[in-house]
Simulated assay, not measured.
Amino acid sequence: MTIRVVIADDQELVRVGFGMILGAQPDMEVVAEVDDGAAAIEAVRALEPDVVLLDIQMPGVDGIEAARSICAGSTAKVIMLTTFARDEYLYASLRAGASGFLLKDVRGEDLVHAVRVARSGEALLAPAVTRRLIDDVARQTVRPRLDDSVLDRLTERERQTLLLLGRAMSNAEIAREMVVSDHTVKTHVSNVLTKLGLRDRAQAVISAYETGLIVPGGEPPGAGGGPLRT
């Protein structure tokens, strides 16, 4: 199945370069290259892509506002593009619904991999990198925004799963920590996303912070205490 991609960046070299790399893949089609957020929103409405690459900072409608609109009105997966690993707007972008981020100097093979992974709905990029980046930004900007009573929607095992997702663990790592099968982890992850109304794992990380389940800069409850057992 062909992955349809929209690229939005006000730097022409980025748009063209990314477009050439992705367009050369047999399973990808770049359906639009635009230079601002408003054009990206219109392209998504008209073309229904699978994945959208959005520059965080663009003139007019920026990437955060565009991500919020695109994620609310479509099933497209959004990947934010940033120049710096500690972009102050990254957390807001993920909270808006983006599935992850890429640095603009990303290697071609990693760009292709990220688009495929985002389309599949799995965790985008190296979990440890994502956790360090979110934690660094969240340390300065995040206070609990969600009533922790939302966690009452989850079973104990699902709550443990959310905590481990917040620690940016992969399914295999969660399975080892909880001493369960990969299939069971996938079920728990799916239940967490459904019950909390989340789009993907990136938003699960955000929810772990916003409910206070994980404290920015601190060791989350349950960390380092050995496997979580039934």
Results as ranks from 00 to 15, higher is better:
A98Q: 03
V5C: 01
G224Y: 08
V30K: 06
K195F: 09
V6I: 06
M169H: 08
Q25P: 13
V51Q: 10
A138F: 00
K195A: 10
L213Q: 14
D105L: 03
G17F: 09
I79H: 03
A72L: 10
E177A: 13
D152I: 08
S170W: 07
S99C: 14
T2K: 14
V117A: 04
A168F: 09
M28Y: 05
G73D: 09
T184N: 07
G212A: 07
V205F: 12
N171F: 14
V185E: 11
D35F: 04
T187R: 15
D200A: 09
A96V: 00
M1K: 07
L164P: 05
G121C: 09
Y89N: 13
D148R: 12
A96C: 08
Q57F: 01
A208C: 03
R176D: 15
S149M: 01
P216L: 11
T184Y: 09
G100T: 04
D87K: 14
D135E: 07
V5N: 05
V192Q: 12
G63V: 10
R15A: 04
R131I: 06
V78G: 06
A128E: 05
T130W: 03
I41A: 08
L228P: 01
D55I: 10
S120H: 05
D135H: 03
T130E: 06
L54K: 04
A118V: 07
T161E: 12
A138P: 06
V185D: 09
P227I: 13
P220L: 03
S93L: 10
M1V: 11
G197E: 01
A43H: 00
V215S: 06
A208T: 06
P227N: 15
D200H: 15
R167C: 01
L133N: 08
R4T: 15
H183G: 02
E88N: 03
R131P: 07
H183Q: 12
A208E: 02
R229Y: 10
R157L: 15
D147M: 05
T82R: 14
N191G: 13
D36F: 00
D152E: 13
